[in-house]
Amino acid sequence: MCYGVATALTGYPSDMIRIGTSGWRYPEWRDGFYRGVPQRLWLSHLASRVGSIEINSSFYRLQPPEYYRKWAAQTPPDFVFAVKGPKLVTHVKRLRHVDDALRTFLASLSLGAKQGPLLWQLPPSLRFDAGLVQDFLAVLPPGRHAFEPRHESFRTDAYFDLLRAHNVAHVVSDAPTFPCIDAVTADFAYLRLHGHDELYISSYSDEQLGEWARKIHDWDRDTYVYFDNTMQGAATTNAETLARLLGSPIPSHM
């Protein structure tokens, strides 16, 4: 577990925290969160309730620039997207010889001012290799990047030191199937909540969310939080509850 002391908080500067969900196109939400909302308006509906969303489709296939422009146009002026890096880079090439793939992906991004961090999720079988990580970090462009390893071997100062040297955030991940490595390595923090008991399913209790709120408060820096417990619709409710606990019940654009 990565939890600290359970405490509900108020008065935290809301402009430092972006809370949202990992993706938005879930048929499971149709009869709940999206009840009565046409599918073409799902993104704008969710963006009216949260401050950020992770784009996941970029992980599976290259997205055309016009898609990013369309998504940006459907969200409020101060909205921010995080974008998941392609599995071609992280899972197929496993961070090796990625120059061309990385260049193609970066050229596709067309979010403008709504571009937030790039998320690099590693496969569970990828062990920590200092030289490999160093080489990959060295080719990343300027901007905010977040690294989500899923192997216990990354729980080492050598890994944390590399991220700090490049101001790259380690992703604190809560899930039952891969390690929760609690470390803040950049001038911003990145948290993914995948479901504590059942991966992508289980809802977080108010007590658990209070514990995460305390941790976010103690980090005392810009923080991006994404709920990935999407399969039964808990993500949206949990996101709104965590925002209230942190004293930011609704986005500033509401």
Rank of each mutant, 00 (worst) to 15 (best):
G36S: 07
G36P: 07
V37E: 02
V37R: 03
P38L: 10
Q39R: 14
Q39I: 05
R40D: 12
R40M: 03
L41K: 07
W42C: 04
S44M: 02
H45M: 04
H45L: 00
H45C: 06
H45S: 09
L46E: 10
L46H: 11
L46T: 00
S48V: 04
V50P: 05
V50W: 10
V50E: 11
G51Y: 04
G51I: 01
S52A: 15
I55S: 02
I55W: 07
I55H: 02
S57C: 08
S57M: 08
S58P: 06
S58E: 04
S58G: 07
F59E: 02
R61I: 03
R61S: 15
L62A: 14
L62Q: 13
L62T: 13
L62F: 08
Q63W: 07
Q63A: 14
Q63G: 02
P64S: 12
P64Y: 01
P65C: 12
Y67H: 12
Y68W: 08
A73E: 13
A73N: 09
Q74D: 12
Q74L: 15
Q74M: 14
T75V: 04
P77Y: 00
F79R: 08
F79N: 02
F79P: 04
V80P: 01
V80F: 10
F81M: 11
F81Q: 01
A82N: 07
A82S: 15
A82Y: 05
V83H: 05
V83G: 01
G85C: 04
G85W: 02
G85K: 01
G85M: 12
G85I: 05
P86V: 03
K87N: 11
K87P: 02
K87S: 14
V89N: 10
V89R: 09
T90N: 02
R96M: 06
R96C: 03
R96N: 10
R96S: 12
R96E: 14
H97C: 00
V98K: 10
D99V: 07
D100P: 00
L102S: 06
R103Y: 05
R103H: 13
T104Q: 13
F105M: 03
L106K: 10
A107T: 10
L109R: 13
L111M: 11
L111G: 07
L111V: 03
L111C: 11
G112F: 11
G112V: 12
A113E: 14
K114S: 10
K114W: 05
K114P: 08
Q115S: 14
G116Y: 07
G116E: 09
P117S: 06
L119T: 03
W120H: 09
W120F: 09
W120V: 04
